Every structure is written in C-alpha cells, then in structure tokens.
Simulated scan of single mutants.
Amino acid sequence: MSSVDTPAGAEPDSGAVLLRLHEAARVHGSGTAVPVHALNGVSLEVRVGELVAVMGPSGSGKSTLLHLAGGLDTPTSGDVVVDGVSIAGLSVKARAALRRRSVGYVFQDLNLVPALTAVENVMLPRELDGVSTRVARQEARAALTEVGVEELADRFPEEMSGGQQQRVAIARALVGPRRLVLADEPTGALDSLTGEAIMRVLRARVDAGAAGLLVTHDSQHAAWADRVVLLRDGKMAEEAPFTAGFPR
C-alpha cells in the first residue's frame, strides 16, 4: 500500500490545493481579561505532491495549526478548507467524517486504543467509515507492512516499545485513501535510523499523490520537506524552500 487510491486509470491531481488556511486565527479564552492568541492570522496552502514542514519554538502555535488543519478544532476567525470543504461551518459529526475520509493524523501522544491490537487500531477508522471488516483488515495489514511492523499485527500497545507504537500510529494515519497527512513530531519516539525510514514512507506517500504537513523540531527531518514554515508567537515568521541537506 504505497500509493494513494485513485479512480482506475486516473492520475493524482498533482499540484491541486488540498489544504488552505486563510487568515486563520485561534483565540482561547476570548472575552476574558487575558485571551491567548494561539494562532494569529496564518495563511498557508499545501498542494498535492507537497510536504510542508512547520518549525518553531515551544508555544509558537505549531500544534494548534495542525489541529485546525485536521478539523480537530475550528478557527476563531478566518477559514480552513480541507479537500475543498470549509470546516468552519461543519458540525462535530461532519468534521469527524471529513477526517476519516480525507485526513490521516499522527498525534504526538499516539492515541492508540489499549484494548485493540495493532491491526485493529489501524483498521478502526476504515470500519467507522463503513468499509467491510475484511477489506479494512487487508488495508491495515498493508499499512503495517508499509511502516515495517507487520509482525506486530496481533500485539496490544502495552506489548510494544514506544517506537513500535509510534509506527503503528503512523500506519493508522496512512491507511486507506487519505489525501492529507498531518504529523505532529512523528519520529519523536524513534531512533535516527527508524526515523529516517518513516520520513521516507511519508515522503513516498506525498509523492504518490497526497499532501503532507509535518511539525518537527529536527532539521534533518525538515529536510525531507519541499518547504519549511517558521512560526513564532502564533504568526508565520518565515516561509522558504528547504534546500540544505535534502536527503532524497
């Protein structure tokens, strides 16, 4: 499972904008004496075939940006459009359906379900979206193979190392026809060799017709991206192509 599902005979719509943020802002505690501006008027586009890395100091708004991009939160002002759909006016249920259909999310804290095996964790979003158990299981095993942990399919999270759990979480984000992959420090629990292998998987998925947004503090992993966005105090401080040390 190394490519994004497309209709028979069709090519991925290379270059199409899959994620668009327009003056997106997120204010916590609006109306209080000390509101927190987690994100302040950020505009960003991520296209099919493009991997964008987001870097910045702690508290700069990186995770908030991912939450808005993935429909886990809604902007206080501005707009966020995912795969042609504005999330601002969607209900919680509709946003969840959009995430299952279009977005693969690698959480920093993994969010694996302890009572489910690796393959069951990976197949869960596909089952929730109405895919048959048989097909969902096939897709899940293919995704586990893609990230190199197919032998863990029947293990529970507590029976895995932190790095193994991280790779299962990445498989869950890649399973099925998701076209937007969001990753919050996806290699944080991995050694350098395994981290590079995971970045190669993410890069291949993007090159096959997805779009990727990666939060990282590691310049070596940012080097896999086409562009780097620097955030500071909730604002875009800089945006530039990443040309130094590109490992491909």
Rank of each mutant, 00 (worst) to 15 (best):
V228L: 10
S77V: 04
W224M: 09
P157F: 00
V36Q: 11
H221Q: 14
M55C: 03
D73K: 04
T194Y: 00
A204N: 12
V135W: 03
L144A: 08
S91N: 06
V181A: 05
D79C: 07
L19P: 06
R95S: 09
E239N: 11
A210H: 03
A115F: 00
R205L: 08
G212N: 03
S63I: 12
A16L: 10
K235D: 13
T133I: 12
V175C: 06
V42K: 10
T76Y: 09
G71I: 01
I87S: 13
G176E: 02
V46I: 13
A38I: 11
R95Y: 00
G245Q: 10
G195P: 11
L174S: 07
G71A: 07
P57W: 08
S58Y: 02
E50P: 03
A171I: 11
A244F: 15
K62Q: 03
E239L: 13
A169H: 09
E151A: 14
D184L: 06
L39T: 08
L90W: 01
A136Y: 07
A211H: 06
H217F: 01
S161G: 11
D191P: 00
G89Y: 02
L202I: 13
R172H: 01
L193E: 15
V206N: 03
G89E: 07
L128E: 09
E238P: 05
A237I: 09
V201A: 07
L98V: 03
V135D: 13
H37C: 11
E23V: 09
G130A: 02
L21G: 07
D129K: 06
I87W: 01
A169S: 11
Q166I: 00
A88I: 13
A244R: 13
K93W: 11
A88Y: 00
G130M: 06
R248H: 15
R20D: 02
R47G: 06
A136G: 09
T6E: 14
L230Y: 14
R178Y: 00
V81N: 04
S161C: 01
A222S: 04
G70W: 01
V82C: 08
A240Q: 14
G148E: 01
A223I: 12
L144E: 01
T133H: 14
R155L: 06
P35T: 13
E158F: 14
P7M: 02
R232P: 01
A225F: 13
S86E: 13
G31M: 09
E45I: 07
E146D: 11
L213W: 05
V46Y: 05
S132P: 03
L213S: 04
E120G: 04
L144R: 08
E146R: 15
R141E: 14
L174M: 06
L180A: 07
A244H: 14
